[in-house]
Nucleic acid binder design. Structure first.
Lengths: 329, 329
DNA sequence: CTGAAAGCGCTAACAC
DNA sequence: GTGTTAGCGCTTTCAG
């Protein structure tokens, strides 16, 4: 035996027998092609399918066609709110095309092996929201699996990339802090401090206004990171009156740290953050945040991957959603 | 042609040829069995694999063995923080077994079709954190796919179920509000008001203390729902001094609504919520919350599904994490 | 419009 | 220890 499934499978042969047709006809009717089937025959087949409770075997189909109906998304951790929302958005976009989504978590050093496993699974396309390491890139290029790298500030080689305009978005936020609220000492909190386009946006906005760079405190993107950063900021840079946070979650942690000292935003420190997540609206005070159009990005990522567009970069505008943490209202 | 992949595939035959062995030996070495392979031969095969950049075809393997290395998780929406954390936890548990995770979103009316698609994909197991409708149950039972229904308060028929002790957990929380802080008018916010074991826990704790039931305001579990519920509570039930929230996210929305009126927790209204999510720690004030041991549940769900344990119920204790929103400290 | 049959790439008996 | 080979269930070409 060749390792057949214990769970007895109803196969298309059973259906064909019951319907009194050949297996080919069963395929034709189930797939609406590539050959036409007479209405009466079709009805008989469908009836047989129903009677038998037949369920097509996706693995067999994938083997035969060389394609699965699986899309894969690689993120650092779904745990982080931003990626959770991204996963939800991609899942919706995938479902709209009749595809299922595999969500894989991979920190930088695991991206290559994870991608390797995924392409072996014959996924229809790959959406990488984690770090596109050189090794990982090699994997999907070698396999020829259509791939899009997202959350990318700018093109990478000849890959298909897509992402918000981190720099301009951040500039909007910092600019608002300067022009609308008159801040002169504006810190940057979180994320990698070098290489991040948000940092560049912050730097540029400050320079354009002729202001000195406030302190930039590196860290991650989580609430815990935000708390740490804010504690340090409060301790070491009392002259700062406003801060730009690399993520909404970070800002939420920063708010918590501020509260520890009895401080409040925006009075004691004005805050603008990045992401435009739903959570931002429910922070106290509600966060003014640079919105990333996640749904549009997810939608485009999926359609592009399916169209197998192999290169280019799409940049999305990131607009400021003004709420209370910056001092407005 | 049979629909072969455009992307030229290196197959085990190529590897076998290069290594000068048979395809069976390639399988044996790659799978570590079922037959032994001489060390030298194994090395040659592995070398050939490397040279060719060979990647096993998962679909072929799945077809042959009748098993994939896919696990599926069905949730209402990954978007909701609780499910995002659950997905992350399940993904980790699955990865520990070398399996990938398909995350499918399905509202109640879509659960059955989604499950049907998943079992057709030969998933190794199914973890249902969405509503296990009768139709959906029929699907996985018919296919014989090992399934566990989680977030379940109590056993359902002869299915394998698992979940926190919603009732006892909630009782802990309400009890704390009564005993430690002397509240007498305690509301219940969010979720379905009937059928939810949390509501029963709230009712029971109040009754046990000889207190009248405070108002119970139904709704969902999101921050927006919490805001709505809290606004109504403030408007219609000024006598209430404390509230139990069905989820942490709900409590976060409730906190925002409280702040709108200039109120603060715990002074104006004490809050205890349910979930024990990481976010609870960063709310202002930090939320006292009933902890759901998500990692343990995810771990057990995965191992049980893989062991194909077909029935029974596992209940997890939900302990109170005491922070500031209840009035402590 | 329908049917027969040749694979898709891999597994695992069953020989040797 | 290694090789042969018959499937797994589906798609699709090629004949009718």
């Amino acid at each position: 035996m060749s390792g057949a499934d214990q769970r007895r499978g109803v196969t298309r042969a059973d259906v064909a027998r019951l319907a009194g047709v050949s297996t080919a006809v069963v395929s034709y009717t189930l797939n609406d092609g590539p050959k036409p089937v007479a209405a009466a025959t079709k009805a008989r087949v469908l009836e047989a399918v129903r009677l038998l409770g037949y369920r097509p075997n996706a693995a067999a189909r994938a083997l035969s066609t060389g394609q699965s109906d699986l899309l894969a998304l690689v993120v650092p951790t779904v745990e982080q709110s931003y990626f959770a929302h991204l996963a939800a958005a991609v899942e919706r976009a995938a479902a709209a095309h009749g595809l299922s989504l595999i969500v894989a978590n991979a920190m930088p050093d695991r991206v290559a092996p994870v991608v390797r496993g995924l392409v072996g699974r014959q996924v229809r396309g790959l959406i990488i929201a984690a770090e596109a390491t050189a090794d990982a890139t090699k994997e999907f290029l070698a396999a020829g699996t259509p791939t899009v790298v997202i959350n990318q500030a700018s093109p990478i080689g000849s890959l298909l990339t897509l992402g918000p305009d981190y720099r301009a978005g951040t500039m909007n936020g910092v600019h608002h802090l300067i022009e609308a609220h008159g801040h002169r000492r504006i810190a940057y909190l979180g994320g990698d401090v070098d290489g991040d386009e948000r940092v560049r946006g912050w730097t540029d906005a400050l320079s354009a206004a002729g202001l000195a760079l406030g302190p930039a405190l590196a860290g991650g993107f989580t609430p815990a990171d935000g708390r740490t950063a804010m504690r340090a900021l409060l301790r070491e840079h009392p002259e700062v009156t406003a801060a730009f946070c690399a993520s909404d979650q970070l800002a939420i942690g920063a708010l918590a740290a501020l509260a520890e000292t009895g401080g409040r935003a925006p009075d004691d420190l004005a805050l603008v953050s990045f992401d435009g997540s739903p959570e931002a609206e429910f922070a106290v005070p509600a966060l003014t945040t640079v919105n990333v159009p996640i749904d549009a990005m997810a939608h485009d990522a999926v359609t592009r991957v399916l169209d197998d567009i192999s290169a280019g970069h799409v940049r999305y505008e990131a607009e400021l959603i003004v709420r209370r943490s910056c001092g407005c209202q």
